[in-house]
Computed example of a mutant assay.
Amino acid sequence: MRTLITGSTTWTDAVALRRELSQLSATSVIVTGDTPGVDAIAIAIAQDLGLGVEAMHKSAEDYCRYPVDGWKGLNERMLKTGIDLVLAFHADYGKPGMARGTVHAVELAQHAGVEVRIFLD
């Protein structure tokens, strides 16, 4: 199973991430980005649990496609790696104008028919 982890760059609740990642099968691979907060915590926990990790970084092409919002290109590329599940962690998800990167990843996944689980705290 390939699981995309997305969320807030200011997220600090490692307990919530560990709870969800520990429920994945031992052969699972998490795919995540290159930011502090959810991405960084997820990488550390996944490694501790012995899960596979694919940490992806924003590329020059991402910024060519989206000059101000390179994260959109990264979200698209991560989802195209064959994601089976998206776990999104963001306390401000659903608030107008907030959690833009997380909302973008969730909407892409939903449009592709990928299961999404959202955690607000």
Results as ranks from 00 to 15, higher is better:
72 K>M: 11
53 V>L: 06
116 V>A: 08
66 Y>P: 03
43 I>P: 00
45 I>T: 09
1 M>P: 08
18 R>N: 01
50 G>F: 05
35 T>C: 09
39 D>Y: 08
67 P>S: 10
98 M>H: 14
78 M>K: 15
19 R>N: 15
54 E>D: 13
42 A>R: 09
67 P>L: 11
81 T>Y: 07
56 M>W: 14
42 A>D: 02
106 V>S: 08
4 L>I: 01
75 N>M: 03
8 S>G: 11
52 G>V: 11
57 H>F: 08
83 I>R: 07
91 A>T: 02
44 A>L: 09
93 Y>I: 11
106 V>D: 09
40 A>N: 10
34 D>N: 15
45 I>D: 07
77 R>Q: 05
6 T>M: 01
62 D>T: 14
10 T>W: 01
12 T>D: 04
21 L>W: 02
80 K>I: 04
69 D>A: 13
89 F>R: 09
46 A>F: 01
96 P>Q: 13
13 D>P: 05
77 R>E: 03
84 D>K: 02
18 R>T: 00
63 Y>A: 06
52 G>A: 12
3 T>D: 04
44 A>R: 15
96 P>K: 15
110 Q>R: 14
7 G>R: 03
61 E>R: 15
14 A>P: 00
29 V>R: 12
14 A>R: 10
15 V>F: 03
35 T>Q: 11
113 G>T: 07
88 A>D: 10
67 P>E: 05
114 V>L: 00
3 T>F: 00
30 I>E: 02
74 L>C: 04
10 T>R: 09
20 E>H: 05
37 G>M: 03
82 G>D: 12
40 A>V: 04
112 A>C: 06
120 L>F: 09
9 T>Q: 09
45 I>H: 02
105 A>I: 00
62 D>N: 15
111 H>N: 13
42 A>N: 03
87 L>C: 11
21 L>D: 13
50 G>R: 13
